[in-house]
Amino acid sequence: MSIFETRHFFFVASAYGLSFLLLAGLALWIYFAYQSKKKQLLRLEAQSKQADK
């Protein structure tokens, strides 16, 4: 019997769906934090070089 034909489909789908949603959210949060911090660091380094001049 396929998983789609059972009354437990809702439970299995919501468990997997919520788990991967949370994991994807965490991974994206870390990725976007990395991108913004990298940009900020590069901007500050450029500002610091200008200030040294």
Partner: peptide, 22 residues
């Protein structure tokens, strides 16, 4: 995720240090 988040935390420390310096 742990290694990636540690990299972010190191960047954050550097940003704070640089902001103080500026």
């Amino acid at each position: 995720l742990h290694l990636a988040n540690m990299r972010n935390a190191i960047f954050e420390k550097r940003i704070n240090r640089m902001q103080r310096k500026l």
